[in-house]
Amino acid sequence: MTANTAELNGEVIEAPSRSVDVLPPDVQTKVQELSPLDGESQMRHVTALLSHSRTGLLAAIAAQDLPGIVAFKAKAGGIQEMAKQLRLGKDMQSDAAEFVRRAERGVGAGIREGQADGTVETNATAARRREKRKQDVATEHRGSRLPNARDFAKQSELYGPDGSSGIYAMTDGVSDEQFEEALGEARAEGNLSRANVARRCKAKAKPPLADPVFDAARSEPGVGVPKPFHGFKKNSTEMLDSINHMLQGAVQTLEFIDADDVDPAQRSRIRTELFTSLNTIRKFMKEVSRDR
């Protein structure tokens, strides 16, 4: 599996680039497969998929794997669409919409951090590249370029239709605490749209501290320096608490599983992977339990 692929319910899908709003191709197929089932079975299936995807998104964020985060953003959109088409309960649809917003914030954070560390192109580096390309054409030489923000999300997603209600509004100058507050308020209101969450985040956002280097660079013609983004990928408490909630959900799902019905051909692989995960959790819990 390459960096540009992800797995949706056991099937490999391409991580989208410039067409990131396209749902995984098998979403409609999954909806058709689940449609004949009763509501409880549909809910279990989508809940399991959502829990697995949340874990994968956290892992991609922790690894600073921007293509992986983009892939899980696409998966988030697929899960949300499944919940809508299957007409699952209000709470499930809200859970799916919340997952989409978290994945979008992950994309925004990844882009901003990539721009800060030089692995994602900014407006300034793009301008220099275009100038150099003009010179290279004369010498018949073309160099490679860094990815830019629009390789990971559409401009309309990043900025929103009004230029200030997109992914960046949920990222720039917005702390984890402010994002959680905005998300909670939007959920209570029953409107977890990107525009609504972004507006609430923007209202809570604090401007970055004065930085002479940053301000000087921002004032240069054609330079688009991103606002600093701090802490999203290093909030260990939030990530551990999210894993805790996911594990609780996974444990509750066990009551619906009949061990005798597990495919014998898959049993050994699943058991080995589960034991590996459990051992990793046990080792980490020893670290958490240590007196500091």
Rank of each mutant, 00 (worst) to 15 (best):
S165R: 00
S165M: 01
S165I: 01
S165Q: 01
G166R: 01
G166I: 02
G166F: 00
G166N: 03
Y168L: 14
Y168F: 15
Y168P: 13
A169E: 06
M170Q: 08
M170F: 04
D172R: 06
G173R: 14
D176N: 13
D176Q: 11
D176V: 07
E177V: 01
E177S: 01
Q178L: 12
F179H: 04
E180M: 13
E180C: 06
E181A: 08
E181M: 09
E181H: 07
A182E: 10
L183P: 03
G184Q: 14
G184A: 11
G184K: 09
G184P: 12
E185Y: 07
A186I: 14
A186Q: 14
R187W: 11
R187Y: 10
R187T: 14
R187E: 14
E189V: 15
G190C: 11
G190Q: 09
N191R: 13
N191G: 15
L192K: 01
L192R: 02
L192P: 01
L192D: 01
L192E: 02
L192M: 07
R194N: 15
R194P: 14
R194H: 15
A195R: 15
A195P: 03
A195M: 10
N196I: 05
V197H: 08
V197T: 10
V197G: 06
A198V: 12
R199W: 11
R199I: 07
R199A: 14
R200F: 13
K202A: 09
K202G: 02
K202Y: 05
K204D: 03
A205T: 01
P207M: 05
L209W: 00
L209V: 08
A210V: 09
A210C: 02
D211R: 15
D211K: 15
D211C: 14
V213G: 00
F214R: 10
D215A: 14
D215F: 08
D215G: 05
A217L: 13
A217N: 05
R218Y: 00
S219V: 00
E220V: 12
E220W: 10
P221L: 03
P221V: 05
P221D: 06
P221Y: 09
G222I: 00
G222C: 09
V223R: 03
V223S: 13
V223A: 13
G224N: 02
G224M: 08
P226Y: 04
P226H: 08
K227T: 14
K227N: 05
F229W: 08
F229H: 07
H230T: 13
H230C: 08
G231Y: 00
F232N: 03
F232E: 05
K234H: 05
S236E: 08
S236K: 03
S236F: 06
T237A: 06
T237H: 06
T237Y: 10
T237L: 02
E238G: 13
M239Y: 04
D241S: 12
S242M: 13
I243P: 01
I243V: 15
I243R: 15
N244I: 05
H245N: 10
H245M: 08
M246K: 00
M246Y: 07
L247G: 11
L247P: 00
L247E: 08
G249D: 06
G249N: 08
A250H: 04
V251M: 13
V251I: 13
V251A: 15
Q252F: 06
Q252C: 03
Q252L: 12
T253M: 13
T253L: 12
T253D: 11
L254S: 08
F256E: 07
F256T: 10
F256A: 13
I257D: 07
I257Y: 06
D258S: 12
